[in-house]
Simulated scan of single mutants.
Amino acid sequence: MPETPEVPQPQLRTLDARSLRGLAHPLRMRMLAALRHEGPATASQLAERLGESSGSTSYHLRQLAAYGFVEDAPEHGKGRERWWKASHDGTRFDESLLYDDDPSTRGAADLFLHEIATIHAQEVNSWLGSAQAWSVEWRRGSDLSDFTLHLTAEETLELIHKMHDLVNSYRDLPPAEGRQPVRVHTHTFPREDDRTRRTP
């Protein structure tokens, strides 16, 4: 039988309590996302892009570097400009951080997740606000769907892994005419219903 091709996996940084506290800041999260999505940049470029001062972005870049999220990109530097790049493709959140004994870690975990949700909502709203400028083909290629399934916790985790594998199978496509960066969000969570409320 032919072997199943291996699904390419992104290089992920798994958060622990220390690194979470270093990242759980709205501006740092947005700066890191910008470097991951748009490539290396200077503090001044990030400041202009995010509407911040270059002093602020410089400080937070140094903090991100101290926690291992960004690193120098000397191949992009010109003269005295300091360029930065993301050290990993993405971040993996460990659910155990929500139940950590340290309340500051739990607070950082909560802030981190809420900021992720805020960023996702802003990206969707930004797309809806600019969609008319895109072609009919790209509008057909966008999606805002939701589904309600009845699953166990184990089945839900299996579904998440399958969705992630499917998305990652498109990760290493070679450059081609017409390809654009495409953002894919997944949100999977349980809801209480009448049957759940009646369960003793």
Rank of each mutant, 00 (worst) to 15 (best):
A109P: 05
A33S: 15
L32I: 03
T105A: 00
A41W: 00
E48I: 15
I116T: 00
Q45H: 15
H120F: 05
G55L: 08
G55F: 04
T57W: 07
W127P: 03
W134K: 11
D72F: 14
Y99F: 09
E115V: 00
H76F: 13
E48Y: 10
H114E: 10
S44D: 12
S96H: 13
G107C: 13
H76K: 14
R49S: 10
S96Q: 14
A24G: 03
A66P: 11
L111W: 05
D72R: 15
R82A: 14
W134A: 09
F93R: 01
D100C: 10
G68S: 05
L97A: 05
V70N: 04
Q122V: 08
A65M: 05
H25R: 06
S104A: 14
S145T: 11
G68L: 05
S126C: 14
G141L: 09
W84P: 00
L50D: 09
H114C: 10
E115Q: 00
A73N: 05
R30T: 06
A41P: 07
D72P: 15
W84M: 02
N125C: 15
H25T: 06
K85G: 02
S96I: 12
G141T: 03
I119T: 14
P40V: 01
E95H: 11
A121V: 13
F112V: 01
D94H: 12
